[in-house]
């Protein structure tokens, strides 16, 4: 415990920097899970896809910015495939995502030239320029990640204020009403899938460059990270309008990273942490119910029979 306290400042800084990069994934998951009301498992494949694309391209000598952009395109393509499976072939959303995720494992392995990890040590990354100036790896991640969030989230918000963007939200809210009002719900769902998985691949690409290697198995548990970050944001900040919500998801992701860092400091085996993450997520998900019951008790409402 004493160890944990002395580590606190560095744990805090690294949680913030990690949280910033993970929040692109959380926002992506928010688009499908909350706005479109679709559970999308593609996440677990598009996240390592972003890492695979960015690492192989950088190793081939491509510029980190171009490599990262292509990783985003790769993620969008993965989203498009799940979207087509769901909308055109009428496969239930959960299964469509699992199918793409499963197929992507082999594709990711091929992209990474059949190795389980690719090292980017001594290679340029999108963070290199900032690191050279600031001499502080975590600070440069916070600045670059923060800048990207400050640009992307308002843009995303503006997009959801357009006729097409509003149609995506309506689709997730009420499919029957959307179709009756002439919204091609297949197209809006496809668009949402692509947008979400583009952001998730961006998260994968950025975290790969930050960690210094890509990992074929990096996707495992990413959906839980995304969902937990959203739930933490929703529990801490209730009923927020969209733009505020997007930024609270960043905060939620940072808080979730801090909680994970704390769990890692517990005297548990390394592989036990996933169990505690799952336990934490279940706890967060049933929190609104518990709060409701607490309210009822306070009001003195009782139920008989």
């Amino acid at each position: 415990m004493l160890n944990f306290l002395t580590h606190l400042p560095s744990i805090f800084i690294s949680s913030v920097s990690q949280g910033f990069l993970w929040s692109f994934l959380a926002v992506g998951v928010y688009i499908t899970f909350r706005l479109l009301d679709i559970p999308d498992m593609t996440t677990e494949g598009s996240f390592p896809l972003g890492g695979a694309i960015v690492s192989i391209l950088i190793l081939q000598g491509a510029s980190p910015v171009i490599s990262t952009s292509l990783a985003v395109l790769g993620g969008m393509l993965a989203g498009l495939i799940t979207g087509l499976l769901h909308t055109k072939l009428k496969i239930p959303a959960l299964l469509a995502g699992i199918i793409t995720m499963t197929g992507l494992y082999s594709i990711n392995s091929r992209i990474m030239a059949n190795s389980a990890t690719l090292s980017l040590i001594q290679q340029p990354t999108v963070f290199s320029w900032f690191e050279k100036i600031l001499k502080q790896p975590h600070l440069s991640i916070i600045i670059l990640g923060g800048m990207l969030l400050l640009i992307l989230l308002p843009l995303l918000y503006l997009f959801f204020q357009t006729e097409i963007g509003l149609a995506i939200i309506a689709t997730g809210d009420n499919l029957t009403m959307s179709q009756a009002n002439g919204i091609n719900t297949n197209s809006t769902q496809l668009l949402g899938y692509m947008l979400a998985n583009g952001l998730i691949a961006l998260s994968g690409a950025l975290l790969t460059q930050q960690k210094g290697f890509s990992d074929l198995n990096a996707g495992i548990g990413t959906i839980v990270i995304g969902l937990a970050s959203i739930i933490v944001a929703e529990v801490l900040f209730k009923q927020k309008p969209l733009l505020t919500r997007l930024f609270t998801i960043v905060l939620g992701t940072v808080v979730y990273r801090l909680i994970l860092a704390f769990i890692l400091e517990l005297p548990i085996q390394a592989n036990d942490n996933k169990f505690f993450s799952a336990l934490f997520l279940a706890g967060c998900l049933c929190l609104p119910l518990l709060q409701q019951q607490e309210k009822k008790l306070k009001k003195g409402v009782t139920y008989h029979g």
Partner: peptide, 22 residues
């Protein structure tokens, strides 16, 4: 659409029969 405001619902209806743009 319950999560959207009255104005947003009307905005969606105003696009019925037209092409939705950016």
């Amino acid at each position: 659409a319950v999560r959207l405001t009255v104005g947003e619902n009307l905005a969606i209806a105003a696009c019925r029969g037209k092409k939705r743009t950016l």
